[in-house]
C-alpha cells in the first residue's frame, strides 16, 4: 500500500502552517545546538563544568552530580550562555519549544473556523509544555 495523498487535509492551511513553523523552529534549534556544541568541544567558549569533571561524575545520580559541580538546576543556565555547555542547553530548549510554537501558530486558524475544541487542544498543549518548562513541578512547587 502506498500513500501518496491524504486528500484536502494534507494541504489545509493549518497543516501547512504547523509544518512550516515546526520546521523553522527545529532548524533554529539545530543550528544553535550544533554551533554551541562545536564551541564546547573546541574550547572556544569557557565551560560551566569542565568535561573532565563531567566524565568523572556522570556515573552518579543527577543529585550528586549537581551537588559536586555546584550546578544550579532549572533556568540558571540562561544566565551562563557565554559558557559552551550552557549554550548547548539553549539549543535543546529551542527544540523542546518547537511544538509549542507550532500549536500556538495554528490556534487562530482553528478559531477562525470556529473549531473551538481544537483551539482548546492547542492552548492546553502549549500550557502543558509551558508548565513542564517552568520548573515549578520539579522544584515541588
Amino acid at each position: 500500500m502506498t500513500v501518496v495523498d491524504q486528500g484536502a487535509r494534507a494541504e489545509s492551511e493549518e497543516v501547512r502552517k504547523y509544518a512550516t513553523v515546526l520546521e523553522w523552529a527545529t532548524r533554529a534549534g539545530f543550528i544553535v545546538l550544533t554551533v554551541s556544541f562545536a564551541s564546547y568541544l573546541a574550547g572556544w567558549l569557557p565551560d560551566e563544568v569542565a568535561p573532565d569533571l563531567t566524565v568523572e561524575l556522570w556515573r552518579q545520580p543527577v543529585g550528586n552530580y549537581l551537588a559536586r559541580t555546584g550546578t544550579i538546576p532549572g533556568w540558571h543556565w540562561l544566565t551562563m550562555l557565554d559558557h559552551g555547555d550552557a549554550a548547548c542547553l539553549l539549543g535543546i530548549a529551542l527544540l523542546c519549544s518547537a511544538s509549542v510554537a507550532a500549536t500556538v501558530a495554528v490556534a487562530p486558524i482553528y478559531a477562525r473556523r470556529r473549531s473551538f475544541l481544537f483551539v482548546a487542544f492547542c492552548v492546553l498543549e502549549a500550557g502543558v509544555l509551558v508548565l513542564a518548562a517552568s520548573g515549578v513541578l520539579v522544584k515541588g512547587g
Binding site: 566524565v55 542547553l89 498543549e125 513542564a132
Partner: peptide
C-alpha cells in the same frame, strides 16, 4: 514531538540533560 518535549523539559529542569551525552547522541 510534543509528548517527548514535555518530559525532556522535566529532565532538563532537573539537570539530567548533559550536553556531552545528549547532543552527540541526538
Amino acid at each position: 514531538t510534543g509528548a517527548s518535549a514535555s518530559a525532556t523539559w522535566m529532565y532538563l529542569d532537573s539537570g539530567a540533560v548533559l550536553p556531552i551525552v545528549a547532543v552527540p547522541s541526538a
